[in-house]
């Protein structure tokens, strides 16, 4: 092409694309684009948070009752793992900026490891739910011992007992939806003898439509899990490029951008964890 490249350095960085005037302009554009993309991600999850808010406002009893089936310890562990991974990711970005090739690879690998642990723990949790029929919609057929709330302390149980007692029927101003198919509502405790946590499970009958909580739980954590997976793919890509020594003080934009994405994925979990696991 013989088009004039006004004002461009003849020996410009090979990473500089033809339509930019300088590396700074290129980097700023990419970063701005990345932030906008993160805005769309926030809005994507925003829809789910909205759905969560609507259902929680309309049926607080479902959430108060059902959240006890989630394992706070595993959830807390995963929160910790993700926070650590954000730290290692931030350090990876810094290593790239400083041109520390070995450390960059180590930090990326550490982040990847954390992501694996997160998904592994999530898998354990899902499996538990699956085994005990704590699923969405018509597949919500709680069974067996462990289908009782996994609460480890008595307070949570008491709180629930208090909450459940009231709204069993009148906790919402909305008329009750038509009851679902057979075996769906009103008897999630079938077969449960209250043996866990000091001898008493949640008092009173389970509210209707508990499955709604699990529907929301699986959609939100599922979509989040997909985002973790996508992040892992991106990190593997970064690892391959950093193995070729591509990043350094002059060019670290991809590491930076994936880092931003990773922090967002982490942040979303920081909201999911209390909203799903730690409610009263």
């Amino acid at each position: 092409m013989s088009t004039p490249h006004e004002g461009r350095d003849e020996h410009a960085d090979p990473h500089l694309q033809h339509h930019f005037g300088s590396m700074v302009q290129q980097y700023d554009s990419g970063k701005f684009g990345m932030w906008l993309f993160l805005v769309t991600e926030v809005l994507l999850f925003g829809g789910l948070f909205c759905a969560y808010a609507v259902y929680r406002a309309n049926h607080p009893e479902i959430f108060a009752y059902a959240h006890q089936f989630l394992d706070k310890t595993l959830g807390g562990l995963n929160t910790l793992v993700l926070i650590v991974s954000s730290l290692t990711m931030a350090m990876a970005v810094r290593s790239a900026q400083l041109g520390q090739q070995r450390r960059l690879k180590q930090m990326l690998a550490a982040t990847l490891l954390c992501a694996c642990v997160f998904l592994g723990v999530k898998g354990v949790e899902y499996e538990h739910k699956w085994k005990h029929g704590l699923l969405w919609g018509t597949r919500y057929v709680p069974q067996g011992e462990a289908a009782s709330p996994a609460s480890t302390n008595a307070t949570a149980v008491e709180t629930t007992a208090g909450t459940v007692a009231v709204p069993a029927d009148g906790g919402t101003t909305l008329p009750h939806a038509a009851s679902g198919p057979e075996g769906l509502a009103d008897r999630p405790q079938a077969g449960h003898d209250g043996a866990t946590s000091g001898g008493h499970g949640p008092a009173g009958p389970a509210p209707r439509n508990v499955h709604l909580f699990f529907g929301i739980y699986f959609v939100m954590t599922g979509l989040h899990g997909i985002h973790v997976l996508a992040g892992m793919v991106a990190i593997v890509w970064l690892l391959r490029r950093s193995a070729a020594g591509e990043f350094g003080p002059g060019y670290f934009a991809p590491v930076d951008f994936v880092g931003l994405y990773w922090h967002l994925v982490d942040l979303i979990w920081i909201f999911l964890f209390p909203l799903l696991y730690l409610i009263h």
Partner: peptide, 13 residues
């Protein structure tokens, strides 16, 4: 999957 979030028969809206 039939999560019921929009299905009145399952308590959805």
């Amino acid at each position: 999957m039939g999560i019921g979030i929009f299905d009145p028969a399952l308590g959805g809206d």
